[in-house]
Design a protein around this nucleic acid. Structure first.
Lengths: 213, 213
DNA sequence: CTGTGTGAAGGAGTTCACAGCG
DNA sequence: CGCTGTGAACTCCTTCACACAG
């Protein structure tokens, strides 16, 4: 469907549109304009139209976008029209949080496995999952056709775990380990690093004080 | 110290440099080149030099950067030369994870309070913190001069909590609630949204399969 | 006359190529 | 001669302005 490689900046906004659409459809909204999407997302209306137009002309001039139709298009573009299974590697506090809290409430994505090295953690239940040893990963990947992994292991273990995961067929990694991980071009990584995020926020609090003086 | 408003893209890389420097200094490395930083961070050497040069000439031509000196400069630029206190609002799994796991190990940042609305959670201990009611926030903010909050409440509560926090003096928010929050220009927000991150990753796994066909 | 779709202009950040200094 | 520091070229995205369709 994409005419050429879509800019990652667009790709990161699509799920935002999808979420707004889901909410509005629940409220029986049928038609939605780029202006409405703009006020709910904070992106400009022009940008939203450009983003959507990148994948095709989904709207009706003078009217707006049909919410249900646009939602279906977005699902297809993102790849959420079929269920996606993911695994969580690293069953620390953070991993457990993802295992139960965030994802189970998401209609499109399902956590099908949770893994850790720590023998004390093995066998513990997190929601409907049982924490297993890392060497069970290949089995689960095969059974559920998993391509996406959430990585919440300590920094020093990250690279070796990543190497294993890639070897076993993972092609996308959501990395919460506070370190750079090396992957081949075929694998996509998104890094989220609390320390980096916090420290860069602190920059703004301190410069604000400076400029006020 | 910044000559003009620093681009946020630079600001987000500074903590990465800092982390590498900390690691290298522990190994008694004294001089470090932009090339070394490049291989450890994945950013290009030119970019790293530009980033650092934005704040001043910290290196020595022909040699490189003095690790300890550069670290001190970075601490000062980011605002980590003095201890920064933060609070966590929302003591769900995610909030608890941040309360104990990630931040207590960070030498520059200290979590000084953890808050929730749920009466069942109040009084529970997380590491050396006791979960308190939201109305205790002003007290803690005053006592510890807090400017930064980590927000891990459900989406529907986010905006009202944010309004309170800003009212009480918070100027920077690390937002984990899966929703857009509205703040005045004086307040900085960084959004981290697991669902958005996962869904955009999934885009790449599905397009990869398409292009292989 | 409303709201989408889009070429053109503009802006922000990155890469290049090299000057400058130890 | 090595590695930093930096103007200039370039690339990518965003904003603007308007044509176009209902």
């Amino acid at each position: 469907m994409p005419r050429r490689n879509a800019p990652s900046s667009i790709i990161r906004r699509l799920p935002v549109y999808l979420r707004i659409l889901d909410n509005l459809i629940k409220k029986d909204v049928e038609i939605i304009s780029s202006r409405t999407l703009s006020s709910q997302t904070g992106f400009t209306a022009e940008q939203i139209r450009k983003d959507l137009a990148f994948f095709g002309a989904f709207g009706t001039r003078g009217t707006g976008y049909n919410a249900v139709y646009l939602r279906e298009k977005l699902l297809k573009i993102i790849g959420l029209d079929k269920e996606t299974n993911v695994i969580v590697v690293g069953a620390g506090d953070m991993g457990k949080a993802f295992g139960r809290y965030n994802i189970t409430k998401n209609p499109y994505i399902r956590v099908v496995g949770m893994f850790d090295v720590n023998p004390e953690e093995i066998g513990k239940e997190v929601e409907d999952l049982i924490i297993e040893k890392l060497d069970k990963i290949p089995e689960v990947i095969k059974k559920y056709n998993v391509r996406v992994a959430i990585l919440t292991v300590p920094a020093r273990e990250a690279q070796s775990v990543v190497d294993q995961l890639i070897n076993e067929g993972i092609t996308a990694i959501l990395n919460f380990a506070p370190t750079k991980i090396n992957v081949p071009d075929t694998v996509h990584v998104h890094n989220t690093d609390l320390t980096i995020d916090l420290q860069s926020l602190i920059y703004y609090t301190s410069t604000e004080e400076k400029t006020l003086i």
